[in-house]
Design a binder for these strands. Structure first.
Lengths: 183, 183
DNA sequence: AAACTCATGTAAGCTGTTACATGATTAC
DNA sequence: GTAATCATGTAACAGCTTACATGAGTTT
């Protein structure tokens, strides 16, 4: 069976302890979505595939009338996860519409087009930053160190981006008075 | 006709002057791929769709036996591009495998697993940074200001990321001697 | 009683990549 | 003459999202 990236998201999520599909989705939405999102439409079919391949095994954990299956890694699943994590290669793809709009904003030949776009970019990064701060503030004790590191990375990166936008906004705003003074 | 994100990449690329599908791909590969990639498999069919919808028009620019079509924006195409660029909303999706591996690296219970992953992350960002520096060094005069701004953003962001990795690497490397000293 | 969270899943469709196919022109 | 670049396109497939469907338990 061929494993894709989503397989490893699930193996990684389950690696920290038994989880249901719902739990995996909750972890993704709280944490990994900032750098790797996943939907139920991927998670549930993939859990089945991984179980069929013997990388995870499910155990019924229904309570009363509410169905629930907890999955845990098998030895094969642990090995697959470790091999993946040890391999150095890693892709990085970004679809950043804010940058796309800024890039093409010269097509609007309004003098403040770029400034407006940088402002929008700042709002975008500030929104993510505020979500990350919220996560940092509500994080329970005992968050594994690598996960904390990734959160720190996110806080730092989006903080940098907000500061960059503010700086550019000042630079661009300073241009207008210059023009009025005729310099 | 419904326009997707790729439609606007093409409208934006053509907005700066008549271009062929090949030209659009070259611009994407040189510039936008860092925040929005596109393949021939999207570009050529989309050019046809946009032409059928009357947003761009093609002009035959074949030379001898080499076929070539130059596209330019129609008035409708210009309007569609402007409307898009003025709308404030913008999505941002990231698929960053380096962060994913770092996030789950506690599953490898080797003491230096996270350190190794941060090193790999630094290499990844350093590679992109070097590509961006190359672009900055070879950029001709007269690059539109907004495009320069986006390049600056990329240089700054990946520069920040490399510095962050270096800092974390130092922190993680300092831990080992502490353990040996028994503190 | 309504709203919310827990819980599992599918089907249709959109987006995008990869690999292939073809051929002309230009630079070495 | 051969390798690189210019130039256009398609078909199969992979990956992912959205919307829908269903129902139990919990909180207000």
């Amino acid at each position: 069976m061929k494993l894709g990236k989503i397989s490893y998201v699930i193996l990684g999520a389950i690696g920290a302890g038994p989880r249901s599909g719902y739990d995996v989705k909750a972890l993704v939405d709280r944490s990994t979505r900032f750098f790797w999102a996943a939907s139920y439409g991927q998670i549930y079919p993939e859990l089945r595939r991984l179980a069929e391949a013997g990388l995870i095994e499910g155990e019924d954990a229904s309570q009363g009338g509410r169905a629930r299956t907890l999955y845990r890694l098998t030895a094969a699943g642990e090995a697959a996860l470790r091999d993946y994590l040890r391999a150095a290669d890693a892709t990085c793809e970004v679809r950043h519409e804010g940058l796309l709009k800024l890039f093409f904003s010269d097509a609007l030949d309004e003098p403040d087009a770029a400034l407006e776009r940088v402002r929008a970019l700042r709002h975008q990064h500030a929104e993510i930053l505020s979500q990350l701060r919220d996560i940092a503030a509500t994080a329970p004790d005992g968050v594994p160190p690598a996960r904390r590191l990734v959160l720190e990375y996110g806080l730092g990166l989006h903080g940098w981006a907000v500061a960059w936008c503010e700086d550019v906004e000042r630079r661009l705003a300073d241009r207008a008075p210059d023009v009025e003074r005729g310099t």
